[in-house]
Design a binder for these strands. Structure first.
Lengths: 152, 152
DNA sequence: TTTATTCTAGACAAAAATATTCTAGATTAT
DNA sequence: ATAATCTAGAATATTTTTGTCTAGAATAAA
């Protein structure tokens, strides 16, 4: 159920671009230094982001990468969908035809609902939101301490 | 971001027990036939469920497994937390100390919020709910067709 | 008391997915 | 021209997940 490091690193990558939105394009080398992620890996991660047109690049000296939209128009949901190779909780959610039982499987519907709830939250968080929390020294509005809910 | 097959099979396992709640204990062999999952794998999956005291077992002939609580007192959230080896979206959510950046990482808070939203949904779905939907021939109350939300 | 049935525990092996690097270019400002 | 930068695909390494095997323990019933 973990997000891949590709997704997590990619989020940091794009957040780095967000911090420099409006400035000169940012090079992979710079991001690598700031985020402490290898150049080679970043090159790999940025490809799907370009393909999805979240990021645009220019080659040659003075080249680099930048966001195609302002940070308040990009959500975490979008980033996760682009980078996460399996972007639903179970294969049967996105491809019911691959499971023989899907037609009358009540569990499948539950995974679907849960996936939906997850994306509703992710879609509600923009890059700007993250930068704002960062400025405030972190600490989201809501309380996040109790994850396991009915554990108690 | 996918749930492991252990979690998915385990959910079917426990749902099978739920269908026979109140009857004689159910053997792994029976579940294996009905769910089409190997005996050996089921034996492995049922261990953590026993440890978490969701399932109780008796040995010997006429032995088998049964739920320790009624199906309306067991939620999907609980099952996922027990079976899913990584039960949060990112390691830093449950173990912030493992990440150097965690103290001022705004992304971590976002993954935490998203994990929370996911469990709120999972915790709200009981085994009884699933059986009910099954009886009705599936079809949850809400519409589940659009997952990718801001995709459109 | 023996036997067949059933669960239990841990180790092991195989397969799949993920993470990461490498090699060889292609562009382009200076 | 050349140095800086991005691009593409292949190749490798690592980790995680999936699944099986071996050996044993408990117990109901004959």
């Amino acid at each position: 159920m973990k997000l891949s490091t590709k997704t997590r690193y990619g989020t940091r990558l794009i957040l780095d671009l967000a911090r420099h939105h409006g400035d000169e394009p940012v090079t992979i080398g710079d991001i690598s230094k700031r985020q402490d992620i290898s150049v080679k890996y970043l090159e790999q991660i940025i490809r799907p982001l370009k393909k999805a047109e979240l990021v645009a690049s220019t080659r040659g000296p003075k080249g680099g990468h930048s966001l195609t939209r302002s940070p308040d128009k990009i959500t975490l949901g979008e980033i996760v969908r682009v980078l996460q190779s399996s972007d639903v909780l179970a294969e049967c959610v996105s491809e019911p035809e691959k499971c023989l039982r899907s037609s009358d499987c009540c569990v499948r519907i539950a995974w679907q609902e849960a996936t939906k709830a997850l994306y509703e939250k992710l879609n509600s968080i923009t890059l700007t939101d993250l930068l704002t929390y960062e400025d405030r020294g972190v600490g989201f509005p809501e309380d996040c301490s109790s994850l396991g809910a009915d554990k108690t």
